[in-house]
Structures are given as structure tokens and as C-alpha cells.
């Protein structure tokens, strides 16, 4: 229960930061994809099931505010959470390199799907431009944010685990 509430609060916080503060007063703003970082982190820290569920709800918020339909981003986030969950076995608390590499691949996948679905299908074929001007800055931004935020998530995860163990002992 404690875990569900914490994840819920984290989702809302990430969404707020992403949608408001990082692009403050800038309609053409690019912000790090904090919801994706959250999905990825809980995917590799807790496994496929939790990664998938976190992605599901992150995608739900993303769809409602940034999308026109409800569903596509939900599906995308969920798949990413599920796939990242497969790295759970490799998970080491001290390792920062792996999540950064995973988030870069995730971002590339995420942006590529958006590009194909919303730009390529409308005959915007200049892939190189979109790669260098939209995807790359976003990837860099998100990767940088991951380095900082991931530590925090690991700490929260550790704290929650300790609490659960304490409860079991009692």
C-alpha cells in the first residue's frame, strides 16, 4: 500500500515538473521526459510487473494532457516499462551506467514511434533534421536528468523495502 501511494505521488510530481516548471514561459519548450525516467527506474528496480503498471499510469496522464486520443502513449509507456523490466535481473544498486544507457535507448524508441506515427505519415520525410533537432536534445536532456534523479529513486526503493521488512518482522 505504502509503495502504491509513493509511486502515485512520484508520478504526479514528475508530471507536474515536466509539464510546468521545466518549460516555464516557453511554448516551444523541451523538458526531460521525467515520466519515462520513472517508468524505466521502477522497471529495472522492481521488475516487469511494476514497470508495466507505472508506465500504464504515466502514459494515461501523458495521453490526457499531451495527446489527442487516450491510449497510444499509454501503450507506448507500458511496453517500455515491460521491456525494461527484463533488465531487473541485471540490476545493481550502485550501477548508474546501465540506467543511462537504457534511458537513451528508450527515448530513441519513444521519439521514433512518435515521429513515425505523427510526422512520417504526414509526409515529413526529413528524418535527419528531426533526429538532430528534436530527438537528440531530448535524449541528452533526459539522460542528464536520469543521472541525478535515478539515485533518488534508488534511495526511495531502498527505504520502502526496509519498511516492508520491518513490518514483516513485527
Amino acid at each position: 500500500m505504502r509503495r502504491i501511494i509513493s509511486i502515485f505521488i512520484l508520478i504526479i510530481l514528475s508530471f507536474l515538473l515536466q509539464s510546468v516548471l521545466f518549460s516555464f514561459q516557453n511554448v516551444r519548450g523541451i523538458a526531460p521526459n521525467l515520466l519515462l525516467i520513472l517508468t524505466m527506474s521502477f522497471g529495472i528496480m522492481r521488475g516487469r510487473r511494476e514497470g508495466m503498471l507505472t508506465g500504464f499510469f504515466c502514459g494515461f496522464l501523458y495521453d490526457i494532457f499531451f495527446g489527442t486520443l487516450i491510449g497510444p502513449y499509454m501503450f507506448l509507456f507500458m511496453i517500455i516499462g515491460y521491456l525494461n523490466g527484463a533488465f531487473h535481473k541485471e540490476f545493481l544498486m550502485e550501477d548508474v551506467m546501465m540506467p543511462v544507457i537504457i534511458i537513451i535507448v528508450d527515448e530513441l524508441f519513444f521519439n521514433f514511434v512518435i515521429y513515425i506515427a505523427t510526422f512520417l505519415l504526414r509526409n515529413r520525410t526529413n528524418l535527419f533534421f528531426y533526429l538532430t533537432h528534436v530527438m537528440l536534445p531530448q535524449m541528452l536532456f533526459t539522460a542528464l536528468a536520469t543521472i541525478i534523479i535515478y539515485r533518488f529513486y534508488v534511495w526511495i526503493n531502498k527505504y520502502l523495502k526496509k519498511k516492508v521488512e520491518e513490518n514483516e518482522v513485527v
Binding site: 521488475g47 508495466m52 486520443l69 515491460y82
Partner: peptide, 27 residues
Amino acid sequence: SPKYLLIVLSVICIALTVISAFFPDAV
């Protein structure tokens, strides 16, 4: 199993997408 959960959630997503595409007022 996460696999079954994935299938169930995917179906929900796709259903929602279809509903919101054809009946925007419903969502």
C-alpha cells in the same frame, strides 16, 4: 504472470484508443 497482465492492459489501451478515436465525447 506479467505476460497475462501485459495482454490485458494492451487490450485496454487499444480499446480506449479505438473508443476515443471514434467517440471522442465518450472519453
